[in-house]
Write a protein that binds this DNA or RNA. Structure first.
Lengths: 200, 200
DNA sequence: GCAGTTTAGGAATGAACAGTCAAGAACGTT
DNA sequence: AACGTTCTTGACTGTTCATTCCTAAACTGC
């Protein structure tokens, strides 16, 4: 009952995510959003409560619909080269990764809820990178013990490499954003993957 | 002649760089700067012209006094592990790299002068990473020819790996900034370097 | 100690900002 | 067709923003 909405909420969220992926949170005004989304201020406030609410909805949507599938594809990639390719080479995921990048760099440090939302995503990325890098040891957190058995060291090493690989993926997207052509970024990822998998 | 300054310009620039490294450009107001720097608004405007002028001075200073020496140390590192360690493991350079990170992610896309200033710095980083990764081929741009001789391919590959390594350095700093729980960044860099140098 | 020059300080300006209000329009229900 | 409900709309509010004005202060040279 009541007047029907003149806009599709999912579409608005997707457009907002796109806009938020291009500039900093404080660099985007509500007027910018109103213009870019083609939806009236009050409709946005009614639906999302505040600018922050809209941002959070956009981030959540992007993490769920862009990043999570991307993580799955990274985890399912046959080898590391393919994993890096799907992570940075696909232009379709640009907006999603750019928003993640912005969120990590400039939102997380000043918004705890954002930080708390991103932490598990980065962890999942690590896990996927670890899977793609070579299925040597099973998933899992580190057990509490302080002993350094060879098996534990190996597992820790896998974690560390995966952590660095996620960093590389984000760094490569950062550089693509900074002006380097996508082709070169993809090529750089391939070159690094090749070096890392030379010695299986 | 005239009344002497009540502040040291270099100190102010350094403090501004520190502050700009913590939040986005638009997330920092002139009031924030006035408070953090302990210098009156008018003195800042008299000296730097505008908020953007102050930012540019801070960025230039940081690139010159933090990033350039860091690049030199990366280039001079004995091996890749050491290069990554000096790049991400030294807490003294945190502010410099964080500012670089913020500049690349959120300033460069909306401020061409910043973008133009960062491009050669990233290129220098690539060159240093290439040097640290192994002194196989001399420095230099690619010659114009389109042939793909083995030597050229090797050189291109070195460039690509170096590009990816710079991305990794920035990515690792990004993750350090994001509050890495568990795995530490330095250790991750070391693990990746170890994998990359296993096969010389 | 006065003239000239440069900085400091506080107050002001207008624009842009996030968020709100009240009136009306489009529906389902009765 | 009258009603309650939900959405739309444009104007509005108070705040914060970057930037500027003006006067007083601190110095140098005469």
């Amino acid at each position: 009952m009541g007047r029907p909405r003149g806009f599709d909420e999912a579409t608005v969220i997707r457009s907002a995510a796109e806009l938020f992926s291009t500039r900093s949170y404080d660099g985007i005004s509500m007027d910018d959003l109103v213009t870019h989304l083609g939806v009236h201020r009050n409709s946005l406030y009614k639906t999302f409560g505040s600018k922050r609410g809209l941002y959070q909805a956009a981030l959540r949507w992007s993490l769920e619909h862009h990043i999570a599938p991307l993580i799955d594809r990274v985890a399912g990639a046959g080898d590391l080269a393919q994993a890096l390719h799907v992570a940075v080479g696909e232009p379709a995921e640009e907006a999603g990764l750019n928003l993640l990048l912005m969120a990590v760099v400039e939102r997380a440090p000043v918004d705890r809820e954002v930080a708390d939302q991103l932490a598990p995503v980065l962890a999942a990325f690590d896990q996927a990178a670890r899977t793609a890098a070579g299925q040597h040891s099973p998933a899992g957190q580190h057990p509490p013990g302080e002993q350094h058995s060879p098996a534990e060291n190996a597992r820790q090493d896998e974690d560390d490499v995966a952590f660095a690989l996620t960093a590389t993926i984000l760094g490569l997207r950062l550089r693509a954003r900074a002006g380097t052509s996508g082709t070169n970024v993809d090529q750089a990822g391939a070159a690094l993957a090749h070096r890392l998998t030379r010695h299986p």
